[in-house]
């Protein structure tokens, strides 16, 4: 029934203490961190995925493997966060969208502060299912038939959650929930920006689904932009 259309998989009780570590408030004279993530090594050749099912809908465009995209030496879809920030800007929980159009998750990686509601969209008119492979959060596996255009899931605790569709084996994407609101996903040019950061010294982390984590120390001065460049080596 439609009152359940916006189904929320919540574990609000357990989530509270985990989030207590970060304290949000007003930031005065905040600076910012911006930069880019470079890929070191030979970029892999783009791999075409085999669409063996629901071809009329899913096969309209060629499906490429999204798990490692390098554009002009820049690493796309890497998640940049500040791992050790305890105080900073207020967490504003806005709904984010995760679109399955054409049997592909767009964006491939979505990052947001924990507690955010993700709106999963199904414009395809066929059955998908949203199957999370989470360990920290409660794992879910929700069917999204044709008549259910949107489905809401809430990621309560910080974790990089892989999402797959069992109907279409090639479909996979990531919902990355973080403790603080300082999180960005690198764009086509491998760049990112974290703004309104209180002056101070922080650990900035880059995470990529295939390449793992790497960190750097960054010092932010009031009202100034701190530039940082990451170099992540291919495996």
């Amino acid at each position: 029934m439609n009152k359940f259309g916006s189904l929320v998989l919540a574990m609000s009780l357990v989530a509270a203490p985990a989030m207590a570590a970060y304290e949000g408030g007003d930031v005065k004279d905040g600076g910012s961190i911006s930069g880019s993530v470079k890929f070191k090594g030979t970029a892999p050749a783009p791999k075409k995925l085999d669409v063996g099912k629901d071809k009329e809908v899913c096969g309209k465009t060629a499906k490429m493997d999204q798990s490692l995209i390098v554009e002009g030496g820049n690493l796309v879809n890497a998640v940049v966060t500040i791992t050790d920030i305890k105080k900073g800007k207020k967490i504003e929980l806005k709904k984010v969208q995760f679109d399955q159009n054409g049997c592909e998750y767009t964006p491939h990686v979505v990052a947001f502060p924990a507690g955010t509601t993700v709106e999963v969209i199904n414009p395809d008119g066929i059955l998908h299912n949203v199957h999370s492979y989470s360990k920290v959060n409660t794992a879910f596996n929700q069917a999204q038939p044709k008549f259910k255009k949107t489905l809401e899931v809430k990621i309560e605790k910080p974790e990089a959650v892989e999402v797959k569709c069992d109907v279409h084996g090639w479909m996979h994407g990531w919902l990355v929930a973080t403790e603080s609101p300082y999180v960005a996903v690198t764009d086509k040019s491998g760049s990112f920006k974290l703004d309104n950061v209180p002056a101070g010294s922080y650990t900035v982390e880059v995470w990529h689904e295939k390449l793992g984590k790497s960190t750097q120390k960054v010092t932010v001065k009031a009202k100034e932009d701190a530039k940082v460049t990451f170099e992540v080596a291919g495996k």
Binding site: M1, F4, G5, L7, N129, V130, H131, A139, F140, N141, Q142, A143, P145, F147, K148, L151, D166
Partner: peptide
């Protein structure tokens, strides 16, 4: 999922037409 955690079979309920 309650019967077999990690099952490929998704939950259709709640959420029927």
């Amino acid at each position: 999922q309650k019967i077999q955690p990690g099952a490929k079979m998704p939950s259709f309920y709640p959420g029927g037409p």
